[in-house]
């Protein structure tokens, strides 16, 4: 059915835009429903001292009095121009706030992502290779233990050990004050948060690789290969691993938002100035504009990655290709 690439990608693009639209409406409405006063985040404690008229005037100024759909339309109009409003809390343009912090999250999340998936692949192959021997057993037990530890607790424990007791590594921030461009300083600040991010997700994917590989080794073609005299290394790496890779890659695509967007806990504990902590704050303090943009960004990333994952799946999975062949050759077209 992929007769016309333009049609295929065009349809995907349409689905994408539609989903984004639905998402934006949903986020907009839901965030407005939350209790709590956005004025608080803008004016802080002064809100309580304001008189009723002043509050009214403030609301009018911030455009909070109009019915929701008008607020939404206004938001869309502005968004189309590239103006996403002002963060109530930071009193800066939303894009500036995000822009100044997104780099940190991308570094943390990006490197974490690469390390996690490379490590998971290695570990998974290692475990499958030594299945049921002590290496596998220890790794599995260790990995299970690791996955049971809540992220925040692990962060605290590591801070306790490395920062407080041993004083080897810093416990917060992305860089010490005044050392902004010193990359060594940055790296030392990155080590602990990065470790947490990687450890958090590593075992989940490593276990998946291990299980998929083990399932492959139960297949009949492995028995055939062995009887033909192929070495274990060849069978494992050239055949089993190749069969596992496509689903691994599409898994990677779908996990991007999960890993990169899941840094908020680490950022909070380590006071790392990324956008994860920003999302949490904006949800907590009803900073609508900021929240909208952050949610939209996450949502768009999720939808985009899912689409890519789907496309990869369709391209790589040979079973789907085989179906297409059957369709074309033997059939009377209606």
């Amino acid at each position: 059915m992929r007769r016309n690439p333009a049609l295929y990608y065009g349809k995907k693009a349409l689905v994408f835009l539609l989903s984004v639209f639905v998402l934006s409406v949903a986020v907009f409405y839901i965030s407005r429903l939350a209790p709590g006063d956005p004025l608080m985040s803008y004016y802080g404690e002064r809100t309580e001292k304001m008189s009723v008229e002043e509050k009214e005037a403030a609301r009018e100024k911030l455009g909070l009095n109009d019915p929701i759909y008008i607020q939404y339309i206004r938001w869309v109009e502005n968004a189309a121009k590239g103006e996403f409003g002002i963060s109530f809390k930071y009193k800066q343009d939303v894009m500036e706030v995000i822009g100044s912090r997104i780099g940190f999250t991308l570094i943390l999340g990006g490197i974490g992502f690469v390390l996690t998936f490379a490590g998971a692949l290695l570990l998974g192959v290692l475990c499958a290779w030594h299945e049921d021997k002590w290496v596998d057993k220890i790794l599995c037990k260790g990995g299970t233990l690791l996955s049971c530890i809540p992220e925040f607790w692990l962060s605290l424990a590591l801070i306790l050990i490395f920062a407080v007791t041993l004083r080897w590594l810093p416990s917060s921030g992305a860089y010490d004050i005044g050392y902004k461009d010193d990359w060594l300083n940055r790296v030392t600040h990155l080590i602990l948060p990065l470790t947490i991010v990687v450890l958090q997700h590593l075992w989940y994917y490593a276990y998946m690789v291990r299980n998929k590989l083990l399932e492959e080794t139960r297949a009949d073609y492995v028995l055939l290969g062995k009887s033909k005299g192929l070495s274990k290394k060849d069978i494992m790496l050239k055949h089993c691993l190749r069969n596992v890779l496509p689903s691994y890659i599409s898994m990677m695509a779908i996990s991007v938002p999960h890993v990169v967007g899941g840094t908020y806990i680490v950022e909070t504990v380590f006071s790392y100035p990324g956008i994860g902590a920003l999302s949490y704050e904006s949800a907590r303090y009803h900073d609508y504009n900021l929240l909208m943009v952050l949610c939209m960004m996450t949502g768009v990333l999720v939808i985009f990655c899912n689409l890519i994952g789907g496309i990869i799946n369709e391209r790589i999975d040979p079973r789907i290709k085989a179906n297409e062949v059957v369709q074309i050759s033997e059939v009377t077209v209606d």
Partner: peptide
Amino acid sequence: KLGKYAVIK
């Protein structure tokens, strides 16, 4: 029916 376009009798 096979997919949207094809039919097998």
